[in-house]
Design a protein around this nucleic acid. Structure first.
Lengths: 198, 198
DNA sequence: GTCTATAGGCAGATAGAC
DNA sequence: GTCTATCTGCCTATAGAC
């Protein structure tokens, strides 16, 4: 049979990751076959193995990329706020978290839901990245407690509670609904501010 | 070959559901085979089909059972509080939600994570049950607003934010840690109370 | 770098014996 | 009600041609 497509393709690698991100989020890692990914990329299944050693590595790459992206983006945002007081930094984190995560719902979903499909070593690695990000919020809360700007009994738990609350947005918000994302941010910021006693 | 086990077993049905609940939560619906379930139940794969028409029905049954259990338990709890004021009802919901869900982490995880594996009809059914439960919280919040006991700009969103915050407990709390569940409940109740402006 | 073809194995579900 | 055996089909990953 004649080959159906020629070689050449510097974009096949990124395309594989983009397709996998969408399919893994939609159906779950275990439910997606390499053949499905290949079909949507537009190559045969065997060709995928020129870009990835195996299916699991593809998943790890997607999760790692997402976590380092979040970290880098928040670090960059924080640098623009060096002189801001602790309340403004908390507001910045709240709005940043909602907006950044709403822009990549597939990556967010995968980074949380597919942790159980990682080997222990990969799991530890990904969770370390997540901790570094969450510590960004914890640092703000602890500074607010020291400065007596916040009334918090347990900054570690408050960190987890706030992150949990903000993550909830991803489960229900759809653009084109009753509220703009800006309005949702403001409502959540109001709740976060009150919850920390500021 | 001789059969390895005799017939009779009124407990095989419940056992199948218990095993499936654990395995689906641990590895994900798509990653668990009927043979795996059968092995842990102690029967051959074919025998499972005396109890369930197919794999998907098993998943639906688990999710439906969980949702009706939550609804029934909260309804029962609410009936013991008929004369309580709105602040006490909100506290009761907060503590109930954390405690009830922490007692069945597997069912909670499945009921949230495996929604994408449902047919549209099943999805609608399960989501309707979830809405009925969440409306229990929304009713409290709206009553609190009417009574001017809470300062909330948007009860619908506050409902989702509070549920999201409380659900976060399931992702990190492990018994035997630094805090008892009672203490965690109290910390979260403190945040919920402040967040609604009570 | 992509193709075709295939190895080797496991999947969900069913049939018929007991 | 459970067994064994099996149908049919898809899975991941690799080999070798071009």
């Amino acid at each position: 049979m004649a080959r159906t497509q020629g070689s050449h393709s510097d974009i096949t690698g990124p395309k594989i990751r983009a397709v996998a991100l969408r399919l893994f989020a939609q159906h779950g890692y275990a439910a997606v076959s390499m053949r499905q990914i290949a079909k949507e990329v537009g190559v045969q299944a065997g060709a995928l193995y020129n870009y990835i050693p195996d299916k699991q590595s593809l998943l790890v790459t997607l999760m790692e990329t997402h976590m380092t992206d979040v970290l880098a983006a928040w670090t960059a945002r924080l640098e623009t706020l060096d002189d801001a007081d602790v309340l403004h930094r908390l507001e910045a984190f709240t709005r940043f978290h909602i907006r950044f995560h709403m822009e990549r719902p597939d990556a967010v979903f995968i980074a949380y839901m597919e942790l159980r499909n990682l080997t222990p070593a990969h799991f530890t690695h990904i969770e370390a990245l997540r901790s570094r990000y969450e510590n960004g919020l914890r640092d703000i809360l602890e500074e607010g407690v020291s400065a007596k700007a916040f009334q918090i009994t347990d900054p570690k738990i408050t960190t987890l509670a706030v992150i949990g609350m903000l993550n909830g947005v991803m489960t229900w918000y759809r653009s084109g609904g009753r509220l703009s994302l800006e309005e949702v941010e403001t409502i959540y910021w109001d709740m976060v501010r009150k919850a920390v006693g500021a």
